[in-house]
Design a protein around this nucleic acid. Structure first.
Lengths: 146, 146
DNA sequence: ATAGAATAGTACTATATAGAACTATACGTC
DNA sequence: GACGTATAGTTCTATATAGTACTATTCTAT
């Protein structure tokens, strides 16, 4: 690989800008209940509840120390609950409150707005190809972790 | 755009993991002088010095309030200097110290290691295509900003 | 020339983020 | 079964990150 690449530099910037824009869209849509980073955690829990904190970490790629404090805030705000695991007393299972479940639709609406902007000028085929490449990079990085 | 996309979710995760891996590579290469986020700022300044803080913000996609505190730390560590602009007294021009200039090679070496991992299994052509797509998304987001 | 708007940076505050060190529990080997 | 090791979470600390409110300076339209 001798060519010049800027992937990492682009990714950082895209992350920065999309986070700020997402935050703004939440505000524009009068969604005050959660913010972008919390949305990422909810996104995972809406798909599958009752995850342990470590599992949540794998699915979000966040460190578990990050999750501890975020889950603290989300519990304070009435979005999640910490439940002891019945079999392994080291583990904690995270479940959603009804309040949190009811927010999924608002989140989805904002995601659609976000995607329109994000993928402006992309054909459906290009989006698919791009998504696959991102998944591949993500997989490369996950491999490295061990 | 009716298809299911995960671009934003992937981007967040890639950003998270690559930041942590990059940090680890810096440590493995015994580079203690700067960290990942500071490296991003240095990367821009190595290409063109004497930027104002707003210009640095545009090129890194960081908010200027973020830069204020990061530049404080980087000045403390002897990497950058704040110089008053001679024409516009509101502006400050950022220059690199000799110490900071000498770090570029170490950074480049780590970037190469990082890219090898990041683009594992990509052909040169795919890398180029992927980079172009990232640039396009970044451009979309920058457009929106106004 | 001056008032009002725009721009550049900073101070302050809150959240996100993660590493290191820690505690409690479980597991694996003898 | 006991001891050493691995795993799950938390606490503590430091940096990154950005929004809001602020000050100082410049620009613009009259």
């Amino acid at each position: 690989m001798k060519i010049e690449t800027h992937g990492g530099f682009y990714i950082s910037q895209i992350k920065q800008l999309s986070s700020r824009i997402f935050e703004k869209l939440l505000k524009d849509n009068d969604i005050e209940e959660f913010n972008g980073p919390q949305g990422r955690i909810l996104f995972v829990l809406w798909q599958k509840e009752n995850l342990s904190i470590s599992e949540l970490g794998e699915k979000t790629s966040l460190a578990k120390t990050t999750l501890t404090s975020m889950l603290d805030r989300m519990a304070d705000q009435g979005h999640i609950q910490r439940n002891p695991d019945s079999k392994d007393r080291r583990q904690i299972r995270i479940t959603l409150t009804e309040k949190a479940k009811s927010l999924k639709n608002s989140y989805d609406a904002v995601t659609i707005q976000m995607n329109e902007l994000f993928y402006e000028g992309f054909s459906d085929e290009e989006i698919t190809r791009f998504d696959n490449m991102l998944a591949k990079v993500l997989n490369n990085l996950k491999q490295y972790k061990e």
